[in-house]
Design a protein around this nucleic acid. Structure first.
Lengths: 203, 203
DNA sequence: CCTACCGATCGGTAGG
DNA sequence: CCTACCGATCGGTAGG
């Protein structure tokens, strides 16, 4: 016989760890979204029977919550230093865009789950996550506002639209960026920073 | 008794039309996403029993397909004239951003379904939709490329990143824009067009 | 970590 | 458009 358990997807390699379960869950959630991934899909991927997953996790909801929190946390860890820095806002913004792209490159699947699928959490867990998301958005808010008040940036009619636009532009990269694609995270970041800082117009 | 049928959500008003079903489906799919909306949610919303929906529609999948096709179609109808126009690229791009925002304002819920939930269609239907999506992206491709080759726009290191960025920026507005919010679609559009054309930097 | 199973819910249909 | 129902699948659990 090829394997010792039904449904095992990989060669036998000792007991299954929580990390393995979470890794497969991130992959499956990012590919197919939370509601259409069944616990049986996850158990198949790690080579357990469905009920055995509950030795390692408490619930499907819990699994999603941890992934979302780690996902947002990755960006907070990487970007928070740039919010407090005293460098020129232009440099900090460019650095933030590059840092965003490098974080995306390292955690693409986790990012897809964190940015869009927190909506499937229950109300209490969504509130937890809203806190983290707010901190994340505040980083860009601070950088842009400091550039406006220092005169480095042209004051937009409505800074909030500009900040939401900037965040939306960055978040949208996860729909087409791939580490295996022809463009490096740095190349994409430089290009987007150019667009945000200088615009398209040749004036 | 208050109503003549169980589960009826609204006052009795004659037979249910296909348009009513589609309207409630758009609302529910946009609020909760396709996989977590049951046919029973839709039938409750229009005041039918679940099985009776199939007098009007063929399947849940069919309902989604029609909504997605109409959603993308709204943008194609509004934006296609701008792809062929001979006006300066700067004017066409600003006009395209404003037209995008006005279309979003008129069809917000439908847009949310069309832009993100086509992934739940089966392979054959996804191929249909991919065609429409490609036409939509080509509009921005044409405008930006014509501005680059005419010298109106600074040539980006990689125009594809710029075009994907532009499309992503526009698509991301549906996550925070609301017709009931404090900002009009025109105000948002002007601000985003300023950002894309002139950037943040005061040079 | 498996065996065996639970109640709930899903999209959809036959027959009227 | 309703009545009555189908097989399939869902997240999760008791007991070992």
């Amino acid at each position: 016989m090829a394997t010792s358990r039904r449904g095992r997807a990989k060669a036998d390699s000792g007991p299954v760890s929580l990390e393995q379960i979470e890794r497969e869950a991130v992959r499956l959630f990012s590919e197919k979204t939370y509601p259409v991934v069944g616990m049986r899909d996850i158990s198949d991927a790690v080579g357990l029977l469905p009920g055995s997953l509950y030795v390692h996790i408490r619930s499907k909801e819990d699994l999603l919550l941890k992934i979302v929190e780690r996902g947002v946390g990755s960006y907070l860890d990487a970007l928070l230093p740039l919010a407090e820095s005293t460098e020129p806002a232009r440099d900090r913004l460019r650095e933030a865009v590059l840092t965003y792209m490098h974080t995306l490159d390292a955690t693409l699947a986790q990012t897809k789950v964190a940015v869009f699928q927190w909506r499937y959490l229950n109300e209490e867990n969504r509130r937890q996550v809203a806190h983290l998301r707010q901190q994340y958005e505040d980083i860009f808010h601070k950088i842009v506002e400091s550039g406006i008040s220092s005169g480095e940036f042209t004051k937009p009619k409505n800074p909030k639209v500009t900040i939401f636009g900037l965040i939306g532009l960055l978040n949208s990269t996860m729909h087409w960026y791939s580490p295996e694609g022809g463009l490096s995270a740095t190349e994409v970041g430089e290009n987007l920073a150019d667009l945000i800082l200088d615009g398209l117009d040749a004036h």
